[in-house]
Design a protein around this nucleic acid. Structure first.
Lengths: 250, 250
DNA sequence: CCTACCCTGTGGTCCGACCACACAGGTAGG
DNA sequence: CCTACCTGTGTGGTCGGACCACAGGGTAGG
């Protein structure tokens, strides 16, 4: 058992037992080191891992905002994991797109079947309004696009799926942007995307689960096909010297 | 920009550019520190993060297995993230179960619609055979059960979804086990689960996507209902002083 | 009463050292 | 000649201590 794992287990146990709560603070690194009988560098390695996992946030100085604070931020670690494994080429882009398709079409169906509160759709609508601006660059447009899709997924009311969706979008942001030049006509694409977004939102608002789900599916498939991004008709960036069954379960 | 992030970006860039490949090795910590003009502790923090993300594996000694080698292991980091955020009570168990339901029923549908190779079903079948052993403890049985479900999800051919599934199962393993005493009759439950597993596998083998998907859905729902685990008819362990919309996007 | 300063505690970084480990190659023994 | 040992060397693992930058709060001075 490595020393820094002592800290991880300690923190997880304290969280599960309620001794640590979101918003609370971890003991100082020096104090933690002494409590566990290990050195400060070991504690720091553990804190780094917790930070990377989105469980704590560190800040220098003093006051309530400083120190090592417990947070609950699952999106950034998921994004980081996806990005890194995408970079290793052992995670085919096609699989990511397929996952996105599954999650989003489910979320749209679910959202359309729920009783949505007054302001819940407002965020998504405002995003669409902002996307009507003709002066947006592809990057700006796509950022709003991603936000809209994430917001839509959030309407299904499942924080895990919403977090995974947000991570997927962040992780593939760069790839999508790089594929924009593949589009035959950016302006025409934007016009189409706007209309599709409006239609999706209308189906969700109108309580048409199957229609919402189908529209989302077509919307996503259509874009990836137009951008010739990996996924549906061509191979992906995966290398040829290994197949996709190479990630062993621990 | 913190110093350890220099290492993270360096490694990600090297991976994306192909300068680092799975199976290769990172320079030694001392060498890396000198190359980037930072200290060894900073390098070590970065290596720890990469290790936690499943991108590298460290080992002492010498030889090809020692040192910091690049791997592609997305399951353990996803598991760790889920476990930790489950521990914070900001990730409702019900959402996890709902996600599992979505992914598994999709995977079963997809697997049943694919042309499966000769040995692909063999692993799952052997797991079922081993689960026929009457002397298994609840924990042993559930481990095999989880393996079966993960193997089944793997048949859909999407490494990301398979990894997420494996992570979900690992993360909730403890919770499921703790719920076993809630079952009215363990022996009867086991008999039922065995039959359901066989039926699911038969539907997959027989190429009946909708049937396979429906069976998986019923199988999962049934178990969680019987074990009275969070999810479908009762609230979860989430606290009352916050709703589920509290994870802000970064 | 208000303001400016300094004290204190936090994480961020670094250095240098030592340990445990595992392989490689030399070396002594058969 | 072959085998077994055994020491050398490079790896990560750990440690203690030191200094820095930062931010807040208490305090002395106006």
């Amino acid at each position: 058992m490595k020393n820094y794992e002592l800290v991880l287990h300690r923190v997880e146990a304290d969280l599960a037992a309620g001794r640590l709560r979101v918003g609370g603070r971890l003991p100082g690194e020096r104090a933690l080191a002494e409590q566990l009988g290990i050195s400060r560098p070991s504690v720091r390695e553990a804190v780094r891992v917790l930070e990377a996992m989105g469980v704590v946030r560190t800040a220098t100085g003093s006051g309530p905002e400083a120190g090592t604070v417990i947070v609950a931020e699952p999106v950034s670690p998921l994004t980081a994991v996806l990005r890194l494994h995408l970079a290793t080429n052992h995670l085919p882009m096609g699989d990511v797109v397929e996952t996105r398709l599954l999650l989003e079409s489910w979320a749209a169906r679910e959202a359309a079947g729920r009783e949505l509160g007054a302001g819940e759709l407002k965020v998504a609508e405002e995003l669409l309004d902002r996307m009507d601006d003709g002066g947006l660059s592809p990057e700006e447009f796509h950022l709003l696009d991603a936000e809209f899709h994430v917001a839509l997924s959030g309407l299904a009311g499942n924080v895990l799926i919403a977090a995974v969706m947000a991570s997927l979008r962040s992780a593939i942001h760069g790839y999508v942007l790089a594929a924009v030049p593949n589009l035959p006509d950016w302006e025409a694409t934007v016009v189409g995307l706007r209309a599709e977004h409006r239609a999706i939102l209308a189906a969700v608002r109108g309580g048409e689960p199957e229609r919402a789900s189908a529209l989302v599916g077509a919307h996503i498939r259509g874009f990836y096909r137009a951008a010739q991004l990996a996924g549906f008709d061509s191979g992906t960036a995966e290398a040829e010297d290994h197949d996709r069954a190479d990630d062993e379960v621990e």
